[in-house]
Design a protein around this nucleic acid. Structure first.
Lengths: 180, 180
DNA sequence: ACCTGAACACCGTTCAAGT
DNA sequence: ACCTGAACACCGTTCAAGT
């Protein structure tokens, strides 16, 4: 009834990948340990060998999503790096509308979580902000970017050209950074 | 084992109120139709007379939460009205940390949903923004305000003085509105 | 008209048992 | 070492039955 991924032994990597696929295909609420196991062609409890419980599975998904963000080259001007990051997040929300919300519900702790944040902080420092101000601005920017992306993914801004809206918001905020 | 609310007949109002209390006390994930019924001192299916299903229950909670927002007097200067609204949202997130996230996950459709939005739009028009610009700014502001409030409720900004941070962000954005 | 209990098709997770 | 099936304590919801 379902596609069963049969490539090699069961690994955490494949568990997460399949969980992501199931969530996007069936809807996030439908993702269960049992359905995931069925999809992997394995007993429910076999999944627990690669994931300590469902919470750990969700943490793994968050980490995987963050790992999909491409970090801009340091050589680019700071404005372009900020825009790059913002668009990466927006693209992620587009690609994974069902699971994107996880990023705003769960605290990201792993290494991938900080990569994007560090890149944003570097860009803001390069824009001339001192350390504390850069951190504050990063929190403001990430809130806006994540919030917009989520709003689009959940349909809160239906009927609105979010592409355009998002670019304008970025424009405004970048100007705000420049005048800090 | 649990407090049973015994005041009068079962009404939608009391169902929602109790659901809110249960969610905040036991955690949002623990809120179930069965536990809610137990709490109301009634059979599970009796709850279904006041709520068509769990989805409808959650929609009801969203509506109730939005109804808790106090709208500022029109006589206040526009900056103060915006600040008022922002603080109301932040206070709501503080009061209902467990259920606040619902507001960002579900589309609000009822009347209470638009009250706050209309008040913000009026303030922005009074600030001199033309109609389209006011709508765009309202979306930006609401995203920031809701995003910050959620981040605080979920602990994303742990160790940070969100009170201070929030005021600074508002300050920045208000200046942005003034210079539009 | 309003409430009930049993039943159905699901969950996450523990644990003893199999290879 | 790795996987399994049965079991436990839960879900949301349908439906026939009670008052």
């Amino acid at each position: 009834m379902r596609t069963v991924y049969t490539s090699g032994p069961l690994k955490r990597e494949r568990v997460l990948e399949t969980a992501l696929a199931v969530a996007e295909r069936e809807g996030f609420e439908q993702l269960s340990m049992r359905l995931l196991a069925r999809e992997l062609g394995v007993s429910t409890m076999a999944v627990y060998r690669h994931v300590t419980n469902k919470d750990d599975l969700l943490d793994g998904l968050v980490e995987r999503l963050l790992g999909e963000l491409e970090i801009p080259e340091q050589s680019l001007p700071w404005e372009q790096r900020l825009r790059w990051l913002a668009r990466e997040v927006r693209a992620l929300a587009h690609r994974r509308p069902e699971v994107f919300g996880l990023l705003l519900r769960r605290r990201a702790v792993g290494e991938d979580a900080t990569r994007a944040r560090q890149a944003a902080l570097r860009a803001l420092r390069d824009a001339g902000l001192e350390s504390k101000a850069a951190e504050r601005m990063e929190r403001l920017l990430s809130t806006v970017v994540m919030g917009f992306a989520l709003s689009e993914a959940t349909g809160r801004f239906e009927g609105i050209d979010v592409e355009d809206e998002f670019e304008r918001a970025l424009e405004l905020l970048t100007r705000l950074v420049a005048t800090q």
